[in-house]
Design a protein around this nucleic acid. Structure first.
Length: 434
RNA sequence: CGGAGUGUAGCGCAGUUUGGUUAGCGCACCUGGUUUGGGACCAGGGGGUCGGGGGUUCGAGUCCCUCCACUCCGACCA
């Protein structure tokens, strides 16, 4: 992509209502813009990042034997009345009517729809287990949307549902998904913890949350500094006063708070803030019983499916990457999430030698299928550098005044370093870095 | 859903208290020139249903009524 042709509306000024780094930088960097309360448009850069995360999620799930489907976003109200959740979900469900005055709901989640899909199509234990998922828009009419993509009303979520003949098999799948989720978040380059959690309104017994560790997280966690143990404080403190008091504390305040107890591994425990980006539940037969979704076991007897459900907040992950990876100048995308890995910057567009080299390198990297953007705009050096830092490309090739000495520079966004490389070696050097 | 605010150019804001010609400023944008390694400078220029509707008045961005939207604090949040 040529920067001169790209729709990337960056701004120098901070939006007045954005307080979190991810919210500010995603808007300033031209990734997203707000359409209404909790509603966001994805501009080209935001769309690229979203698709990259989506494809990593899909890749790992498919490898683990899950089937991707796509359910309709508008669902009949009757579906929710049968499960009893039309009341339980309350105002969070956005209800609409069609021209015949029939009531519909914009999907906030899809347990019911997925059970209905499988019911009477999967009828034998021989067809189990089965794991279906989708990566699709959800709508929850939050009382108070905020923090940009971290708490929107419309958002992209991966929701998966598995069906089993036995509880043991369901637990096996639950464990498999835990491992799969770990692979996904690791590939995204995130620092995260798996914690024991409450099951909340979805119901079920076993439940684990996946949290990206970030100062601005809304949840408070207790994590071990030696092993990978972690727990949401909601599960380890009994009194609500105690939980509320801890949740109100800032990240800094929590850091100075000591925990006397030791982890079972003997390690030191400490408080951290986390952003919930994944949640997995063991549902049992809660939904399958209520919706009468049965299969025949080895003895030909009808039984409700044992189920589990698995969620990942895909759009929330975009913001999480930035909450964890940014500085005062802007975004620092991880390699697997960056909208473009390499930004080629011609310092002075009027200098023919610089422009020529830029064009040549741009073509060569494109041919090599490198995700590359070419900043060919007629702007000054400082302007283009600030812009590149705000957007957060991992590497920027600076073709500038050192070209006279046969050198170009590679700027590393994360390390904030510039290294000079002879023109003849630049291509190999980039291929080596990415 | 309770409490508090805000709404004026693409963005950020002043002007509203005390009604008065043609509604300002910064950034962004356009033209010309200078500049060219860290968001340049000079000159000129374009862009506004002052959130919508109704009312008071000779006259409303400003006063009154009403509706809407958005934000913040709290409650809520698979």
């Amino acid at each position: 992509m040529r920067r001169s042709r790209a729709f990337i509306p960056t701004t120098k000024e901070v939006p007045s209502d954005a307080t979190l780094p991810s919210h500010q930088f995603l808007i300033r960097g031209g990734f997203i813009n707000q359409q209404g309360a909790g509603l966001y448009n994805y501009l080209p850069l935001g769309k690229i990042v979203l698709e990259k995360i989506r494809s990593i999620v899909k890749d790992e799930l498919d490898k683990a034997g899950c089937n991707e489907v796509q359910l309709s976003f508008v669902t009949p109200m009757s579906l929710w009345e049968r499960s009893g959740r039309s009341d339980a979900m309350g105002k969070e469900m956005l209800r609409i009517k069609d021209r015949h005055e029939n009531e519909f709901v914009l999907s906030p989640t899809n347990e019911e729809a997925m059970v209905e899909l499988v019911k009477n199509r999967v009828t034998s234990y021989k067809d189990l287990p089965l794991n279906l998922y989708q990566i699709n828009t959800k709508f929850r009419d939050e009382a108070r949307p905020r923090y940009g993509l971290l708490r929107g009303r419309e958002f992209l979520m991966k929701d998966g549902y598995s069906f089993h003949a036995t509880k043991e098999d369901m637990v096996r799948e639950f464990d498999l998904m835990e491992e799969t989720y770990k692979k996904i978040f690791t590939r995204l380059g995130l620092d995260f913890r798996v914690v024991q959690a409450d099951s909340g309104a979805i119901g079920g017994t076993g439940s684990k949350e996946f949290h990206v560790l970030a100062d601005s997280g809304e949840d408070t966690l207790v994590v071990c500094e030696s092993c990978d143990y972690g727990a949401n404080i909601e599960t380890i403190f009994e009194s609500e006063e105690e939980i509320d008091a801890l949740n109100e504390k800032s990240y800094e305040e929590l850091q100075s708070q000591n925990i006397e107890e030791k982890c079972s591994c003997g390690g030191k425990l400490s408080f951290k803030k986390g952003i919930e980006v994944g949640h997995i539940f063991q549902l049992g037969d809660r939904y399958s019983s209520k919706l009468e979704a049965h299969f025949n076991d080895e003895n030909g007897r009808a039984k409700p499916f044992e189920m589990a459900t698995f969620g990942i907040g895909v759009s929330r992950l975009i913001a999480s990457v930035i909450e964890q990876n940014h500085d005062e100048n802007g975004c620092i995308w991880t390699k697997s999430t960056a909208p473009y890995l390499v930004n080629i910057m011609v310092s002075n567009i009027k200098d023919e030698a610089q422009t020529e080299l830029g064009e040549e390198l741009y073509t060569k990297l494109q041919d090599a299928k490198v995700e590359v953007i070419f900043d060919d705009r007629k702007e000054r050096f400082g302007f283009k550098m600030k812009d590149a830092e705000l957007i957060g490309f991992p590497y920027t090739v600076i073709i500038g005044k050192e070209l006279a000495n046969g050198l170009v520079q590679i700027y590393n966004r994360k390390e904030k370093t510039k290294v000079s490389v002879p023109v003849g070696e630049i291509y190999e050097k980039i291929m080596e870095l990415i």
